[in-house]
Design a protein around this nucleic acid. Structure first.
Length: 228
DNA sequence: GCGACAG
DNA sequence: ATCTTGTCGC
């Protein structure tokens, strides 16, 4: 099939995809999109990288808000069970991310995830998936679109444009830096689009990626080189 | 039927 | 995600 001509993986068992799709359909009913009720003091960023083909290394970074100073960073690595399949990323990466999260001594008020929240075919991007498992507010910041259409936002930092999918606004395409490709911001769970967008912008200092995600990405590479 | 497709 | 050189622009 189309997915697996692009990646060197064998076609996934249709029965397994059907089971995972059904699992997402059930989780879908528990998603809560609302104005967050927290007093944001600690925000987390998380990201994963791979060591070889079947070992995943994840990191969680804890930052103060709005100062954005790092107060904690943890990592964990382990085997992955599934190949990457568009639309099913969480089943591949969430297990190790959850184990990494447990290592945090303090817990964040909000988690910023690298990837989509509800801007997903079944509203179950990895940010939403993690939020449901942790019963914690989450939001997604992705570098590329998964589903939906949009018009390019203006070239200056702070410009936004809606990402539309089946007549719904599922994310905001946000310019976090002048003349640099925008990012896709969506609520994950216990969060709403407007709050997620303003927080992403507040975390955008001088780089394209908001600090929680950028630093998680950075440390993922650092820890990876230490393990190798 | 032909593309598109987070990390 | 990962493999990888030079190159264009601020």
């Amino acid at each position: 099939m189309a997915y697996f001509r692009r990646f060197d993986y064998p076609a996934p068992d249709p029965a397994i995809l059907a089971r995972l799709t059904e699992e997402q359909r059930q989780m879908q009913e528990r998603i809560v999109i609302q104005k967050p009720d927290f007093d944001l003091k600690l925000i987390a960023g998380c990201d994963s990288s791979f060591i070889g083909e079947d070992t995943i290394l994840s990191v969680f970074i804890l930052l103060t808000y709005p100062e954005l100073e790092v107060v904690e960073k943890v990592w964990h690595h382990g085997p992955v069970e599934l190949p990457y399949i568009p639309g099913f990323l969480a089943f591949r990466e969430a297990p190790n991310l959850l184990k990494t999260y447990e290592k945090l001594e303090q817990k964040p008020d909000l988690i910023m995830v690298d990837g989509h929240g509800i801007s997903h075919p079944r509203r179950l991007g990895i940010a939403t998936h993690l939020g449901l498992h942790l019963n914690k507010p989450t939001m997604g910041v992705a570098k590329k679109v998964l589903v939906g259409k949009y018009k390019e936002p203006a070239a200056i930092k702070g410009s936004v444009s809606p990402l539309i999918y089946k007549d719904d606004i599922i994310a905001n395409v946000l310019r976090t830096k002048d003349n640099i490709k925008p990012v896709f911001v969506s609520p994950g769970h216990l969060m709403d689009l407007e709050s997620a967008t303003s927080i992403a912008l507040a975390c955008a200092t001088k780089y394209k990626l908001p600090e929680p995600t950028r630093l998680a990405d950075h440390y993922a590479a650092v820890f990876k080189s230490e393990v190798k």
